[in-house]
């Protein structure tokens, strides 16, 4: 007899003769209930395990499909010709599938975006974490968050309607769609991620570091730039790497401002990025051309995986540092 029954004797009273004996029906019910409960417990165990494995499954699925879809065309075209060929003419009578222009454009575009976006993002983070009063920071931070939330097609639209005509006027071009326009759009798009990750890193710098520097006679600005930023280095690098990933993977905004011509990268020429090469032709491609697009996506995917691994490495190093 358990506590529950001692406290509230079940209806129908307990006859002295039966005291101490279990009602066989009731005990059967209880063991059945216990069985059901254990079963539910087992099932939920399995369900949660399955959910936990979903992310792994998704990564395997994506990796598998990228490799399966991307390899055949590379094999057919030849690795060196594909990666280092300088001419992309997928619909010509004698089709050429060299993606070096796309790779270089993506590399230069990302580099340009980083060169512009990182200083602004980092300085904004300094402002938010170290310089601004909590009230002012409370007004600027939502601006950064909103910038992050604006859909890429909206960036593309504004770039197309404002930046591209401006390029034509300022640099006297026939056609404003160019690498520089794409770089500027990308710089704005990666600014929020760099800023918010750097801000978190700057906030995590131990107060004592800064106090020690101030006590030695350094000004607050000197302290920030010579003590706080070096101390928050790994977090800031993580933000930059995240920005690189964003910039290299962005498709729609870039497609609307870069012109999508397979030129070698030049600031004032229409260019095609790895992402836009895929997005532009996918809707009508067929045969080898279509397979080659999957190969481009595979190259992009490999770049992204390298960046991901790098990001993980930087973050791990930052953790072990603390």
């Amino acid at each position: 007899m358990d506590m529950e029954q001692v406290k509230n004797p079940p209806k129908g009273a307990v006859f002295p003769a039966r005291a101490g004996k279990e009602d066989p029906r009731k005990s059967a019910g209880r063991s059945l209930r216990k069985m059901v409960r254990d079963l539910v417990e087992q099932i939920m165990n399995g369900v949660f395990f399955a959910c936990g494995m979903a992310a792994i499954l998704a990564v395997l699925l994506i990796t598998g499909y990228m490799i399966l879809a991307g390899l055949p065309a590379i094999g057919q075209i030849g690795v060196t010709e594909f990666l280092f060929g300088t001419r992309w003419a997928s619909t010509a009578a004698d089709p050429q599938f060299g993606i070096l222009p796309f790779i270089l454009t993506s590399a230069w575009g990302t580099l340009g975006a980083i060169l512009i976006g990182v200083p602004i993002g980092l300085f904004t983070a300094v402002f938010l974490a170290k310089v601004a009063s909590p009230r002012v920071a409370g007004m600027v931070r939502p601006a950064v968050e909103l910038l992050a939330g604006i859909p890429s097609v909206v960036y593309g639209l504004i770039g197309m309607m404002v930046l591209v005509p401006a390029m034509m006027d300022i640099f006297d071009l026939n056609n404003g769609t160019c690498l520089l326009a794409a770089i500027l759009v990308l710089a704005i798009m990666i600014l929020p991620s760099i800023s918010s990750v750097s801000e978190t890193a700057l906030r995590a710098v131990p107060r004592e570091y800064e106090e020690a520097s101030l006590a030695l006679g350094a000004t607050w600005i000197e302290t920030i730039f010579k003590v706080s930023i070096p101390a928050a280095k790994s977090g800031i690098v993580a933000g930059v790497v995240l920005g690189v990933g964003r910039a290299i993977g962005e498709a729609m905004a870039v497609m609307m401002v870069a012109g999508n011509v397979a030129n070698m990268p030049q600031l004032f020429k229409s260019v095609t990025f790895l992402t836009t090469a895929v997005a532009k032709e996918m809707s009508y491609a067929s045969g080898l051309q279509r397979q080659a697009l999957f190969s481009i996506a595979l190259v992009l995917f490999i770049f992204i995986m390298i960046i991901n691994a790098l990001l993980n490495f930087v973050l791990k190093k930052g953790d072990s540092h603390e």
């Binding site: 936990g52 494995m53 992310a55 792994i56 998704a58 990564v59 699925l61 994506i62 499909y65 990228m66 879809a69 995240l242 990933g245 290299i248 993977g249 962005e250 498709a251 992402t275 895929v278 997005a279 996918m282 999957f294 996506a297 992009l300 995917f301 992204i304 995986m305 960046i307 991901n308 990001l311 993980n312």
Partner: peptide
């Protein structure tokens, strides 16, 4: 699992689009 989650977060949407189309 956490690494897989991070990886998923880093994959650009155009790649999701392609895999979604294929799968």
């Amino acid at each position: 699992v956490e690494f897989a989650t991070e990886t998923l977060a880093g994959i650009p949407s155009i790649i999701y689009g392609l895999v979604g189309m294929l799968f």
